[in-house]
Each structure stands twice: as C-alpha cells, then as structure tokens.
C-alpha cells in the first residue's frame, strides 16, 4: 500500500442539494460571509418540458498536479504527504498567483479585514440594539461566531492580504474525524478516505462506479470525484 492520498467522492444521485455542507464548512472553518470554501453550481439544461436540473457541490480539488502549488512564488501553497493542498499564511505575500492558476475558482483572497460585516458596525437601532464590535467586546470573542479548533493547523481567522481555501478539514482529520461537510451531509452523499487503501470505503466506491472530475482536460488530477447523476 502506498502513502496516504486523501480523496472525496461526491455521489450526485444521493445529494439532495440542501447546502448543509456549505454551512457546516463556514461554521467549522470560520469562513468569511462572502467566501465559500464549500460551494455549488446549479445548472438547468434544456427547455421546458425537457428540462434537466443539476446541483454540483464544489470545493478545492486538492489536485495531485496542483497548478496553484506550481504558481506560488513563496511555497506558501504546498502539498502535504497525505495529498492535501495546504496554505501557509505566514509565507503568503498575497500575489494571488494561486487564484489565477486555479481552474476551479475555489481560492479566495482576503482583500478586506476578515469577518467584518460593515452593515453591523453600527447598531441597527442606536442605544437599543448592539453593534457587531459591541457584541464581540462583551463576549470577549474575535467575531460573532468562532471555532477555536480551526487554530490547530491554520490561523482561526486568516488575516487581511492572504488567500484561503478548503483544507479537507485537516485539523479534524488529525483527530480521526471526517471533514465537516462529510459529517453534515444528511444523505451520506460525500465519501471521504484514502484512495490508496484498497479497503477504504472511498476505494470500494471508486472501484464500483465510473467517477468523473471537473475540467479533466486541464490535467490537474483532482482528488474530488463525482459519481451518479443529480
């Protein structure tokens, strides 16, 4: 058996399009409101009455041949031994070369102070309701919601001027837990594991099904694969 290569298979037939994965990801990773590490595409194909609707969840593909890693001038974007494409904000200069290089548009750039909702800076009703900074001060937390466990491998909130993206919840994997999106899926549409382990569920699913990837022509060898039809 070779080294670990984490991989996610998304069963579009099982997926119900509820977006629980997107919400779970945001809460687990303290993702800013305008970013979506876990995202989705909605497609409608054809004309009534012959219409087909598809919901395709998307996230960082943790490509084996990752163009973002090749493009990064400081090695801030790098591959871990387990196949995860990881980002080190301490090395990041904010050039966005990784964002340009990514064919899937799943890397986000913090061009503003993270997790600040400008509409909540002032109280909605002066001297009656609280502003966001007021609540934070009172509760002693950096933001209205915050998961401190994210700090294990990455700054809990990424600073202004750097990029951020899905990490396959590497901090949870270190504890033997699946990624938050996998755990949150009510339809068990996401299967996660080591594709180099023939006994893993993900290997068994891949052996039984014809798996597809997004933009195969780019040659990035994604580790997020899709089976079934929505």
């Amino acid at each position: 058996m070779g080294k670990v290569q984490y991989c996610m298979v998304i069963d579009l037939e099982a997926c119900v399009g509820c977006s629980a994965c997107d919400i779970a990801c945001k809460v687990e990773n303290n993702v800013p409101a305008s970013f979506a590490w876990s995202n989705h595409i909605i497609e409608t194909v054809g004309k009534f009455p012959d219409v087909k609707y598809r919901y395709i969840p998307t996230l960082c593909n943790h490509c084996s041949n990752a163009p973002c890693v090749a493009a990064c001038p400081t090695t801030a974007m790098h591959k871990l031994d387990n196949g995860i494409t990881m980002h080190d904000p301490s090395k990041c200069i904010g050039c966005a070369a990784c964002r340009i290089a990514c064919p899937y548009d799943v890397i986000y750039f913090n061009d503003k102070e993270p997790l600040v909702r400008e509409e909540f800076l002032e109280p909605l009703i002066p001297e009656c309701t609280s502003s966001q900074p007021g609540i934070q001060k009172k509760l002693g937390v950096p933001v209205g919601y915050y998961n401190p466990e994210r700090e294990a491998t990455l700054p809990g909130i990424r600073p202004r001027g750097v990029v951020e993206k899905c990490t396959f919840c590497d901090h949870r994997l270190a504890k033997g837990l699946p990624p938050a999106c996998v755990e949150a899926c009510p339809a068990n549409a996401r299967i996660f594991g080591d594709r180099n382990d023939p006994n893993s569920e993900v290997s068994k699913v891949l052996a039984k099904n014809h798996a597809r990837v997004l933009k195969p022509e780019k040659g990035t060898e994604p580790n997020v694969l899709y089976i079934g039809e929505f």
Partner: peptide, 24 residues
Amino acid sequence: KLGRPFHAFNTLINFNPHSPLWWG
C-alpha cells in the same frame, strides 16, 4: 497589488522554480 507587500522578501528566501513569479 500584493496583499502583504512587506512580506515580499519571502520570494527571495523560498525556492520554487516552477513559478514564473519567483523567477521575476
């Protein structure tokens, strides 16, 4: 344009010959 211009020195102390920006 850089998000963190004062960290630009990171380009000089890290090595990634695959990146044109590193060569630049």
